[in-house]
């Protein structure tokens, strides 16, 4: 079991309020991602759940039990750190065994569990090495191994993939998702990368300046962003926003159109916006066009990779009328 509830959790460092007031319910077995720009309080929130920081006020319940003041060692959670935080003076085997040794399990049980974890994570042949003799991906696996052996109520991941190169990151992303499907243990995963959030999460918490902007499934967030911040943060490339008279036509303070929701033509169409291609980024499968559209400024358009445009081409953009997001003056979705 591993349900986690935060009730009116507040955290200040001195006079600085990092998290004003957050309430969240994370169900047992869920994969929840905290995502947001740097400094949004997502890591602090994770550390509050871990018990590495204490709350200024509010309650943290694990499986319905109040753990607000319990030290990290007593919470039964496991954490994978951004730096992996492996013990450099211990072999891989001792690293993985450490939480079991702290739990004072008998030696045979420890050996058995460590061997099992090592096999699951393909670490069996590295058990006697020191962490510094391992590659980044292997270190990451050791950190995960150390977390899974103790069968925690929940796993906490603090930007675990940010030190890996791009190719390895995709691999590890899949491995962690698979691990979740296998273990069905609650996982909370902190990242600033919205692609990781979209691909891994059952539900995503979008944080901004310590506030929960929206909590929902990835597609919910994509299709029905609660506000302009979420709309801009989720989706890549990011949504284009238009204010003023054009927005007023839609009875809104501002409107947003995702790069993929345009029809692009070389001749004017009814209701189209006229623009000039500034940069064309050709990825093969897609082409991202950065188009200078009169008073609206620079807009990003996603188009088929087969089409070729170049700097200076005149183009006409027609937003898909059914997929225009409307926002009021406070940025709330209409």
């Amino acid at each position: 079991m591993g349900s986690i509830s935060l009730e009116h959790v507040n955290k200040s460092f001195g006079d600085v309020q990092v998290i004003p007031d957050i309430s969240l319910d994370i169900k047992d077995g869920e994969f929840v991602v905290f995502v947001g720009p740097s400094g949004c309080g997502k890591s602090t929130l994770l550390r509050l759940i871990a018990g590495l920081e204490d709350t200024s006020s509010g309650t943290i319940l694990l499986d319905g039990v109040d753990m607000t003041d319990a030290p990290p060692a007593r919470r039964g959670l496991a954490m994978v750190f951004q730096s992996y935080a492996l013990y450099p003076h211990m072999s891989v085997r001792d690293n993985i065994a450490f939480p079991l040794k702290m739990a004072k399990l008998p030696k045979e049980v420890i050996d058995q569990k460590v061997d099992y974890a090592a096999r699951t994570l393909n670490l069996s042949s590295y058990l006697d090495r020191r962490p510094r003799a391992l590659s980044g991906g292997q270190r990451q696996r050791v950190a995960i191994g150390r977390a899974i052996v103790r069968e925690p109520k929940a796993f906490l991941f603090d930007e675990p993939l940010s030190n890996l190169d791009a190719a390895l990151r995709v691999n590890m992303r899949l491995e962690i998702t698979e691990l979740h499907q296998q273990l069905k243990t609650t996982m909370i995963y902190v990242t600033h990368d919205q692609v990781e959030a979209m691909t891994m999460a059952d539900r995503i918490v979008v944080l901004n300046a310590g506030n929960v902007e929206q909590f929902g499934s990835p597609l919910d967030l994509y299709k029905k962003p609660a506000n302009r911040f979420v709309a801009g943060f989720i989706g890549s490339p990011r949504m284009n926003f238009v204010d003023g008279a054009e927005a007023a036509k839609y009875d809104a303070h501002s409107i947003g159109v995702r790069p993929e929701h345009f029809v692009l033509t070389r001749i004017p169409a009814p209701g189209s916006w006229e623009g000039v291609v500034s940069v064309a980024e050709q990825l093969g499968s897609d082409t991202f066009l950065h188009v200078q559209v009169g008073e609206f400024g620079l807009m990003t358009i996603r188009t088929d990779g087969e089409e070729t445009f170049s700097h200076g081409d005149d183009v006409y953009l027609t937003p898909d009328a059914t997929r225009i997001y409307r926002f009021d003056a406070d940025g709330k979705a209409l």
């Binding site: 460092f13 018990g51 590495l52 920081e53 204490d54 003041d69 030290p71």
Partner: peptide, 8 residues
């Protein structure tokens, strides 16, 4: 950055 408990 640490908990009250650690500080104590």
């Amino acid at each position: 950055m640490a908990t009250q408990q650690t500080n104590t």
